[in-house]
Amino acid sequence: MSNQPKTAEDLYHFLDELGIRHVTKHHEPVFTVAESVALRDEITGGHTKNLFVKDKKDRFFLLTVEENAVVDLKTVHTLIGAASKVSFGKPEKLMDYLGVIPGSVTVFGAINDTGHNVTFVLDKDLMQHDIINGHPLSNDATTSIGRDDLLRFLEATGHTPLVLKVTA
């Protein structure tokens, strides 16, 4: 039986312990990038889209890219070190590893990946923003964090993210 996934409150507490400044804005649940565009005027910085994918060897990757960026799923495996072309990971694995449901996928899910089953890939273009925004484990809020602090957060969860250009 898996442990209960961490909550947004657990995430905020973890960031506080690391001395990482973060700001969260609560809003109506958003399931798509299109729905979240209405929040742009209120929340500055790089807004993210997250793709949870796996290769044929069941190695999992979370690709975090700028919301409007295009990822070529036919070729991205050559960039991220996957053993084959990638396909989307199943919702059960998403919950097991990142503690989130589809529509709430986020780089902050790293806090739940205690078994280090997921490789986190941050797109180089996204990382040009000073502030990065992601769901705090649920899609009814957006948490803003500094780019360097995001890297520090991932390292603190035991993940060394790959910062690569994975978008077209």
Rank of each mutant, 00 (worst) to 15 (best):
I132T: 10
T167Y: 04
M1K: 11
F52T: 06
L151R: 08
L15K: 01
I20N: 01
D55C: 11
H26A: 14
I145D: 01
A110D: 07
H47M: 12
M127E: 04
V53Q: 03
L154P: 02
P161D: 01
L15V: 04
R40S: 13
Y12A: 13
V105L: 11
A82Q: 08
G45T: 10
L164V: 10
D123H: 04
V65F: 05
S87C: 09
V23D: 15
N133A: 09
G109D: 09
Q128P: 00
K49P: 07
T48I: 08
L122D: 02
N50M: 12
V100K: 11
K93R: 14
L94A: 11
A83F: 09
G109V: 12
D41G: 15
D72K: 09
K49E: 06
L162Q: 15
T7L: 12
I80K: 00
T78E: 15
A156V: 03
G158Y: 09
D125I: 10
S144L: 08
K85W: 09
S87H: 11
I132L: 11
G99D: 09
V105N: 04
V53E: 03
K165A: 06
T75E: 15
T157M: 09
G115A: 14
L11C: 07
K124G: 01
G19L: 04
D123R: 00
L162Y: 05
L126N: 04
D148K: 08
E17Y: 00
I43D: 06
F153M: 04
A110W: 04
P161G: 02
I131T: 15
H27P: 03
D72Y: 06
I20R: 01
G146D: 08
T44K: 14
V70S: 13
F14L: 06
D140T: 03
V107M: 10
T75H: 10
R147S: 09
Q128W: 01
V33T: 13
F108S: 12
I145A: 03
D130L: 08
D130A: 14
K57P: 00
K54M: 15
N3L: 15
T143I: 13
N50L: 13
M127W: 04
I132A: 07
H135D: 08
G146W: 00
L18E: 06
E66G: 08
F60I: 07
V53A: 05
K56E: 14
L151F: 01
L137A: 11
E17F: 01
K85N: 12
D148Q: 11
S144Y: 05
R152G: 07
I20V: 15
S138I: 10
S104T: 07
